[in-house]
């Protein structure tokens, strides 16, 4: 009698334990999925929502495709713009080169011009006219870049004398003999233009100047070092 009662009590205890345990598990599950709409829905509802989502997805996908196409277009535009910028840059560089604002390299000749000397006494000094003439000759022979004592000759360059002294102004900078004149251009033309009979070399020698002509395959002429400004010229 007592034994069977104990068995009953234990069984009922176990049963209540199982029931409460399962209840707690279920509560846990419900809590975990609480707020998730999708779990409460019926199958039909789920189907309709699924269809709605599919539609939305398709719309979004189409939009995405459109946007991608647009981006592609923009990229193309950008590319053409970049090309234009590159072209402009190239043009600017070329213009700078023509102006003399960049260092340039190439084949050319180096002329060393000095006052004639005889036993330490200067015979004749080189005048600005000599220099101007030389530069004109070089330009005539197709020189593309010229410098005198590393002073680049550009469109606005000046070659002037300071009084009757030996100082010459080139680009408003002082310099004296000897003059090293570099010119980039066709070596043959330049040399023959200077060496022609009755040409510059002849006349320079006749005046008693020292003149020496060298050729160089790859030489550098430095850029014009000042700013090129225009205060009065207007468009």
């Amino acid at each position: 009698m007592n034994k069977s009662k104990i068995v009953v009590a234990i069984t009922i205890g176990l049963m209540s334990f199982m029931m409460i345990y399962i209840m707690m598990v279920q509560i846990n599950i419900v809590n975990e999925y609480d707020g998730e709409e999708i779990e409460i829905m019926r199958e039909a509802e789920l189907k309709t929502t699924l269809a709605a989502y599919k539609e939305k997805y398709e719309e979004a996908n189409n939009e995405l495709i459109d946007t991608k196409a647009k981006i592609e277009e923009y990229k193309k535009d950008e590319k053409t713009e970049e090309d234009a910028i590159k072209l402009l840059e190239e043009e600017v560089e070329e213009a700078n080169m023509l102006l003399g604002k960049t260092d340039v390299k190439g084949q050319g000749i180096i002329i060393t011009l000095d006052n004639g000397e005889e036993e330490g006494i200067e015979l004749t000094s080189i005048s600005t006219e000599d220099l101007v003439e030389l530069i004109n000759e070089l330009k005539l022979a197709g020189a593309e870049a010229i410098s005198i004592n590393e002073k680049r000759i550009i469109a606005t360059s000046d070659i002037a004398e300071v009084g009757y002294s030996a100082i010459r102004l080139i680009n408003n900078e002082r310099t004296t003999a000897p003059y090293i004149i570099k010119a980039i251009g066709d070596i043959k033309y330049l040399q023959s233009a200077l060496n022609i009979k009755g040409g510059y070399v002849d006349s320079a020698l006749a005046y008693g100047h020292k003149i020496k002509i060298e050729t160089q395959e790859n030489m550098t002429i430095e850029k014009y070092k000042k700013d090129i400004t225009m205060d009065y010229v207007k468009k």
């Binding site: 009922i12 209540s16 345990y21 707690m24």
Partner: peptide, 18 residues
């Protein structure tokens, strides 16, 4: 005694179930 057993069962169930 039976009530006692039920109470113990419920308590253990809650403790383990949480």
């Amino acid at each position: 005694m039976i009530i006692f057993a039920i109470a113990i069962g419920c308590l253990v169930g809650i403790m383990l179930g949480i």
